[in-house]
Design a protein around this nucleic acid. Sequence first.
DNA 1: CATGTGTTGTAAAACGTTTTAATGCACTAT
DNA 2: ATAGTGCATTAAAACGTTTTACAACACATG
Lengths: 342, 342
Amino acid sequence: MAMGADGPRKRATIKDVAQAAGVSPGTVSNALSGKRRVDSATQARITAAIERLGYVPNLAARGMRTGRAGTIAIFSSMPTAVAAGAARLGFLMEIAASAAIAALESNTALLLVPPIEDPVRALSTIAFDGAILVEPETEDPYLSLLAARGVPTMVIGPATEDQPLAVRIDYRRMAETLFDHLHDVGARDILLVVGQSGRASNIAFREVFSQRSTAHGLPGQEIVLPEAEAERGAQAALRAHVAEFGAPDAVLVPIDAMATGVMAALRELGLRVPGDVCVATRYDGIRARSESPALTSLDLHLDQVAELAARGLVGALDTGAGAMVVDAPEPDLLVRGSTVLS
Amino acid sequence: MAMGADGPRKRATIKDVAQAAGVSPGTVSNALSGKRRVDSATQARITAAIERLGYVPNLAARGMRTGRAGTIAIFSSMPTAVAAGAARLGFLMEIAASAAIAALESNTALLLVPPIEDPVRALSTIAFDGAILVEPETEDPYLSLLAARGVPTMVIGPATEDQPLAVRIDYRRMAETLFDHLHDVGARDILLVVGQSGRASNIAFREVFSQRSTAHGLPGQEIVLPEAEAERGAQAALRAHVAEFGAPDAVLVPIDAMATGVMAALRELGLRVPGDVCVATRYDGIRARSESPALTSLDLHLDQVAELAARGLVGALDTGAGAMVVDAPEPDLLVRGSTVLS
DNA sequence: CATGTGTTGTAAAACGTTTTAATGCACTAT
DNA sequence: ATAGTGCATTAAAACGTTTTACAACACATG
């Protein structure tokens, strides 16, 4: 000791505080956490010492002892979550922003985990107590990994029986709202353009579309595409469809990247929106808004959804409660220029 | 021990692995980290044991020993960062998304820390090795807190002498590019609408605007507003300005929320964009794109900026290098319908 | 007086890793 | 033979908390 001069002062520890306040480390710990009463006089001495020494708890040490990291992670396996440019700001980021706020109010920080090639490595590199998983697939790799590791996981997505923590999204309701709007504005030859993967939202949209079409006695044609080349694929597919069958009255295209492709194809073909063809999509994101005309879509109330998810997860972690399933708020229709002349 | 049945199996520790492989914990640690050579035979036994026991390192324990949390945090004190709804997806989130990807490639996770009332609490609740600070103010509370705590902090923002880690943003260049574009499309009576706070970007825009206006012999009027009520304030101020001075040829309004207000006021006054008045803003975000016509703005290459910042910070943490200052890529003009008829 | 009860405080163990200094061991060079 | 040199490994000491079991004391109760 007595290391002389002005080297980078080592950070004060709880021991230093204890010594300065003339108590034991355990007492300081109790004073800090409030887990046990400490005499108000000692309490005062301790807070004074903390102040004077500029003590900041070592969170790693605390975490090792308590087994809590004080963080939750947000994941998504959606390939679109990592789209380029400003479109990167989609669904996932909108939820993340709100979840971060809600989490921080519970003294928990949010880890942003982008989709990467090697989920396993991510999970063993990053310390977190629980996870929020956005729109898991049917056999989602993250979900099974997290389950195997026993990490409490809050799913934002489809309702499943065996998922104890969830904010349930009603994709059928979305499909119904959009379909009915198109029908209301007079569309009869409605075309569905939808993703191929087994995601719940694709399935729900196809089911509802088919049911509603049958019920109204409409043709109900659909184009099913792989999600990967969403924009380009949708553009080409729509072009081909119009060439073969002529133009529909309306296109219902839940995935916004595909909606961009659809709009491009319609422009290319000289078809007017909404004069010749109406278009509606699901997520009111930057893509829907940057189109001209802007696309009719849904307000999914993602801020509320995120808050429910974050609070629910943190609550479950704190109380040890195993299950908490709530429904997302009902989506509201946002009528824009792509279905109604402004 | 011998606790009978099937309780929730305790997670395997490095000791268990060591025992199973017939070596000491230290050797397992070395095998894991690669910090020292271990014989390939023992290496194999160890990896086998890890596999068999499903061992996952306890990151808190590791962190305590190494003093590294394996995370970096991203902050911003910008009030606009927490705007409501989809507008929440601004600048900050766009940077965060890209930074998260870059960080994860270096085995570092990104903590999303929204602006809150009590920064001090956030800093002692959350464990992180370094920070990315977006657009700090002149006397930024976060910056001084982080500095006081000795946390390496990468600033994305204005160039300052004493900041060792930075991705420098050239706000003057942005102002010049936008002003010159407005001048090029024929605007002569250009109005600047800008924020009141001491943020570098406000200062740069005012300086450049004044210099350029003088150089060209233009009136160069400006409206300076508090950032808080950006949208409403800009709308009212522009209305008043037009009432007093008549309509300008063009409005240069760097803050996108204010640009929204300006557009609203122009609509209200029955002025056509770009026929009567051109409008340009700085950040090509959701607001700029959702306007009709969409607003001419700048591509700031935020993905590259974020990558530079994240990599630079992680590099500095790893190597202990104290300084790393780089320039952000030059912004590119995005000409849209608000300055040129499409 | 003996016993119980509640309140503050303490000492020491534990959490699971990494790192340091030391140990054996095989081999080479003197 | 002796010393020197690497190499692979180990034992044990940290890292800074929280928690457990216990002690000391004051006070009330029988």
